[in-house]
Design a protein around this nucleic acid. Structure first.
Lengths: 343, 343
DNA sequence: CGCTATAATGTAAGCGGTTACATCATACGG
DNA sequence: CCGTATGATGTAACCGCTTACATTATAGCG
């Protein structure tokens, strides 16, 4: 452990050992230019002998690109996060980029001089999830022509920044339409996500339109805060039950709150789906393992991550990307809505 | 979007505008050396005007340290991962390090010259989760005196590499002892994790010792593969039920398999905990929301991440770290074991 | 008032690569 | 047999910053 650090070999060491210039070594490493096969072999042998690896920072400085993309997150939690990251890490690997991640929740107090530890100074482009970056910083980056792609978040007014997200409204509509049309529910609670969560707005819109289509008046008392959070949703539903609110179904804006809602319902002795039908949104891993298995909408989370990386890389390399990438979702009917699908 | 990239200001631009040398600008940026307050103000104004940020690679090259730690993962999934990463990202932020992450599952085919995209060439130290790195690479890094800290993984024979993990055996023992002593179960299935998963071995050891302590013979038929995976566990338990194996409890090696086991039990019409008591290990977020809420062992995942970063930073800075950091766990009794705790 | 300690700042040599350009052999066509 | 295109390699400037050392100005002191 207290092993002293070994001095690392440099390209000059390799050149010396192989009896060539550093330029030739560089050519071998990067498969650039022309090198005689014999020479290349010597160089490779020298690299092997010295256990040489190019110093990344030196390459970055000389090439003027970092080969790294940055990922900015407001916070790290839940299944959703893991799936998305898997997609992003996979995408980055595929395209040959390193991945630098930064979570806004970190106490960045130590950084006195410059506010954001990730940006033009150490990456070739940034992936920003929801409101991970304040608008000012986003504008600054955009003004500099720095590549940025947003995930699950639309750019602030006036900024043409590509974004990648999923279709929300139509599937929310179909879900609620299913509850009404197939299962005859009419008093449907909607558990909304946090204000900043755009997806939630669209899901609520789908909910409202489905009710309207069936000529069911919107009852404000049925729209409550789910917070995209198990505990919040559990508390909310517990309160609704205590207040004696009349409802026969719950559409949770996301599966996390659906989970909390389910807990609250069971704790209160309500049967799902007999007394109260329950549906969610996202299809997180756990959804199918709940009891009863959750009817929800499958959001291709991992694919969103991959697609975002793809757009970013394209933006970095060509200066262009699609302004909006909308990935399709899919209804997943299980048992919590009242259907009797064998799984 | 097709906005052309703006040329970035360099330290020389700032120096020029402020009418000082680059050395002085550097001193201001790094709060090093002595600079007259008046001068410093001018420099800061110039930085502001030019919207200057130091080029990270140039700093790295000049200082000979990257201020970055690398995290290597075999794969990205589940609640466990998110919690651990939260701890690590938080720790890195606290200590002022950037976080470069690399998942071994990525197809690294494009990297022809050098095998690992993360290592001495672009980080000051590495955090390796379970078997994220092949032993050869680990040995190479260790031989070079490069700082590495292992998480949930012991170093291969002969390598003195610090590792951070949790206590497993004693709590597994207490859990199984609880099933036997309090709930009178004697036919207890153990769902083991994958071979490479060290924790699983210790948990199994705790299981065996608890049985022995109660003079219950070990029945090999009761030890089955849980795979640390919901689907695997579900399939395994479904098979055990189909085979008509006699058992009155299941100790799942981790909560993920507990979840799968629960699904299989309910699908087969077994009541939990009346017919079969069920306990897990880890206390993932979802555990308390299962029906019934899961009795398990709380593993301080996030804290493990923070602690690992702490050890790594200490190792980087001083060349020393604790060879083994074992964090304590805690029994969490809920209802799936048969207890009637109100939650 | 001259000398020296100290504060403030500048100069320039790296850090470890990449790459435009120069150089040198060799092969080939007329 | 010579001129030239081509392949192989070397030379050295440069990427943007840090920092040891040199330099200059200022102040304190006997």
């Amino acid at each position: 452990m207290s092993e002293r650090r070994v001095r690392r070999a440099t390209i000059a060491d390799v050149a010396g050992l192989a009896g060539v210039s550093t330029a030739t070594v560089s050519r071998v490493i990067n498969h650039a230019g022309t090198v005689a096969p014999e020479t290349a072999r010597h160089v490779r042998a020298a690299i092997e002998t010295l256990d040489y690896r190019p110093h990344a920072a030196a390459q970055v400085l000389a090439r003027n690109r970092t080969n790294t993309i940055g990922l900015v997150f407001p916070e790290i939690s839940g299944y959703y996060f893991a799936s998305l990251l898997r997609g992003i890490a996979g995408g980055a690997g595929t395209y040959g980029y390193d991945l630098l991640i930064y979570s806004a929740q970190e106490s960045a107090t130590y950084r006195t001089a410059f506010q954001y530890p990730v940006g033009e100074q150490n990456t070739d482009g940034l992936l920003v999830f929801t409101d991970g970056l304040p608008e000012g910083e986003l504008r600054r980056l955009h003004a500099r022509g720095f590549p940025v792609v947003l995930i699950h978040w639309s750019p602030p007014a006036g900024l043409e920044i590509p974004s990648v997200t999923t279709e929300n409204k139509a599937s929310a509509y179909r879900l609620v339409d299913h509850l009404i049309g197939v299962h005859g529910r009419r008093r449907i609670v909607f558990l909304a996500g946090p204000e900043e969560h755009e997806d939630s707005h669209w899901r609520e819109k789908g909910y409202r339109q489905a009710l309207e289509a069936h000529r069911i008046p919107i009852d404000g008392a049925l729209i409550a805060a789910g917070g995209s959070d198990r505990e919040v949703a559990r508390a909310t539903v517990a309160r609704l039950l205590r207040d004696g609110l009349d409802f026969d179904a719950i559409f949770a804006g996301d599966d996390d709150s659906a989970t909390g809602a389910l807990t609250a319902l069971l704790e209160a002795g309500r049967r799902v789906p007999e007394d109260v039908a329950l549906v969610g949104f996202d299809d997180i891993d756990i959804a199918q393992h709940l009891n009863p298995p959750l009817t929800t909408v499958r959001v291709p989370v991992e694919q969103i991550g991959r697609e975002a990386v793809g757009q970013l890389v394209h933006l970095i390399r060509t200066g262009e990307a699609d302004l909006l990438t909308l990935l399709p979702t899919q209804l997943v009917i299980r048992r919590s809505c009242g259907c009797n699908v064998v799984h």
